[in-house]
Design a protein around this nucleic acid. Structure first.
Lengths: 183, 183
DNA sequence: GGTGGCATGTAACCGGTTACATGATTAT
DNA sequence: ATAATCATGTAACCGGTTACATGCCACC
């Protein structure tokens, strides 16, 4: 199992293609029209990324012919693609990822229960909760220590970030309750 | 006033150097040890970025000599650098920036009242509040409409994002109150 | 006198941005 | 007909990542 790195966009494509085989154009529409708009929908990003995934033999594209139909190339995951996706999804939650921003973690979570069993997202949420519970106080301490040094808007911006983390910690609890009440 | 684009890292450097002239190493420590750790502290990012800013004549580096001192190059903004920073800070808040993620907006806010008058951050907060108030319901509608289509973790991940935006909207109100009570 | 932290840099690589390009199909 | 949209692609550019490289100073 070779380990060439896959970009975040690459994983987003893998996850979406796992859920539903799609063309590049379909995927571009998703990035243009849904909350996944944090990703660029530009053809210069999508098509080369799909080509790379195909070169690495994680997906396979098939040109769909058909009378009176537009030419389109539909990609789907093969077993290696599914393996690479799963390997990404079951990565442990690290303090570093939490501190650098939750984008990748949330994307992973979004794809989890389509691909893995229920225990994976539950363990993910527990680990995420632990990391948030340890990170938030250190941020609060920094804020308190630097209160006099920071300009007002700097202090407020940090406060905004901390509140975001606090909201996510509350969300973790509710999400765990959701999984708990479904068994 | 030429308008070559400056990366987010570039603006972060401009903002920090405005507050306090520093060496590349000082700046790296900030990115390594403070909540600005969302930026990379790698020398391969910082030093070339500083060089570009100097080439564009927004900052100037001076080598600090001195017996028994380590060689270090301290950068500071010149008037063009201050102008470029201000121009970035007073950009209007667009719906697109809010939807793509608040990182850049928050960074701008963090530097605002060191560089501009009080009215700029206040107007910024009002505009941000307007955008959030219009974006949150569209996200909620999408969530409701797709509820049956999305996998559980997908729905929950989106819920997490919405709650983050809601927390930021509450923060906007508190931040405005902070400015209001300071006059 | 050697280890470790200070301090600055360079170079290859890679992927996203921006802009351009093409052709087919549908709608007016 | 012709404009808009569908659908896929390419190429130059740029900046961040990763890894490597250098030398000085402080400490023990």
């Amino acid at each position: 199992m070779e380990d060439e790195k896959i970009s975040l966009l690459g994983y987003a494509l893998l996850g979406l293609l796992y859920i539903e085989p799609s063309s590049g154009y379909d995927l571009r529409k998703i990035f243009a029209l849904t909350p996944l708009r944090t990703f660029s929908d530009s053809p210069g990003a999508i098509y080369p990324a799909l080509r790379r995934l195909e070169e690495r033999k994680l997906i396979r594209g098939k040109i769909e012919a058909g009378a009176g139909m537009r030419r389109r190339k539909t990609y789907r995951l093969n077993s290696e693609g599914i393996a690479a996706l799963k390997k990404w999804l079951i990565r442990p939650v690290t303090a570093d990822e939490v501190m650098r921003g939750m984008d990748e973690l949330l994307l992973r979570f979004a794809f989890m229960d389509s691909v893995t069993g229920r225990s994976v997202p539950v363990e993910f949420l527990k680990a995420l909760g632990r990391e948030l519970k340890s990170y938030i106080p250190t941020l609060r301490e920094y804020l308190k220590a630097q209160e006099s040094e920071l300009p007002i808007s700097g202090r407020l911006a940090l406060e905004c970030g901390v509140r975001g983390y606090e909201a996510q910690l509350r969300w973790v609890r509710d999400a765990l309750a959701t999984y708990g009440s479904e068994e």
